[in-house]
């Protein structure tokens, strides 16, 4: 799920190529209206079936890849500060410290905020659709000063998401006294990794106390 296993630019070109070919065939049919002989059927099968399916499949995969990008999350203005804060190399927030590596640095929102597990992709997409809906119905015109105070997660951030990458199984990790003493609570999710006193809030600029560790 991480990184860009699919070359988005190539997918985009294939999708555009298929769409252009299909449109050409379809428009030609509409203009000429040839009789429905065998050759017409084969052409229409290309123009209404094969090429549009090619465009849809490559377009969908490109769409999924785009949806993971931080830039995509930042397209709604209320997420803009989160995006720019992550891109600020001076920033030391947990979120921005996860924005620098090559594997998922550009997809860091998705890396932390997607649901993991069997239906993770589906539930993440459903949740995302809900967010887009609420953006257009509620938050579209809300100024940033206000949205920073009112936007919140629907459920507490699960430690499990951190533990997808930070297994809590290695010595270096376990030798940290705070990790050692709270291991059971951390694994069970009773003590949040991203809380004041531990690693601080991931986006301290939205927290009144700054979430300083």
């Amino acid at each position: 799920m991480l990184g860009a296993p699919f070359p988005v630019d190539a997918l985009t070109s294939i999708a555009l190529f298929c769409a252009a070919g299909a449109a050409l065939i379809v428009v030609t049919y509409l203009v000429r209206r040839p009789p429905l002989v065998h050759a017409t059927k084969v052409w229409l099968l290309m123009g209404l079936g094969v090429l549009p399916i090619g465009a849809a499949m490559t377009g969908n995969v490109a769409g999924y890849e785009h949806m993971k990008m931080r830039h995509f999350c930042g397209s709604c203005h209320v997420m803009g500060p989160y995006e720019s804060e992550c891109e600020n190399l001076e920033s030391h927030s947990l979120a921005s410290r996860h924005a620098r590596n090559k594997l998922f640095g550009n997809e860091n929102c998705y890396a932390c905020h997607s649901d993991y597990g069997m239906f993770g992709t589906v539930t993440t997409k459903m949740g995302g659709m809900g967010h887009v809906w609420r953006y257009y119905t509620e938050y579209r015109d809300v100024p940033l000063e206000e949205s920073a105070k009112t936007i919140h997660l629907r459920a507490p951030f699960p430690n499990d998401n951190c533990m997808q990458c930070h297994s809590t199984e290695l010595d270096v990790w376990n030798n940290v006294p705070d990790h050692k003493s709270s291991l059971a609570d951390v694994r069970a999710g009773r003590l949040s990794c991203a809380s004041g006193g531990c690693h601080g809030f991931a986006h301290p600029f939205t927290k009144p106390d700054g979430g300083a560790p």
Binding site: T12, A15, A22, A23, V26, L48, A55, G59, C76
Partner: peptide, 18 residues
């Protein structure tokens, strides 16, 4: 088909949420 293709092309060229 033309409407569907237009939507696909729009999404590919302007990959924003809507």
């Amino acid at each position: 088909a033309l409407v569907a293709l237009a939507l696909i092309v729009w999404a590919v060229l302007v990959p924003r949420p809507v």
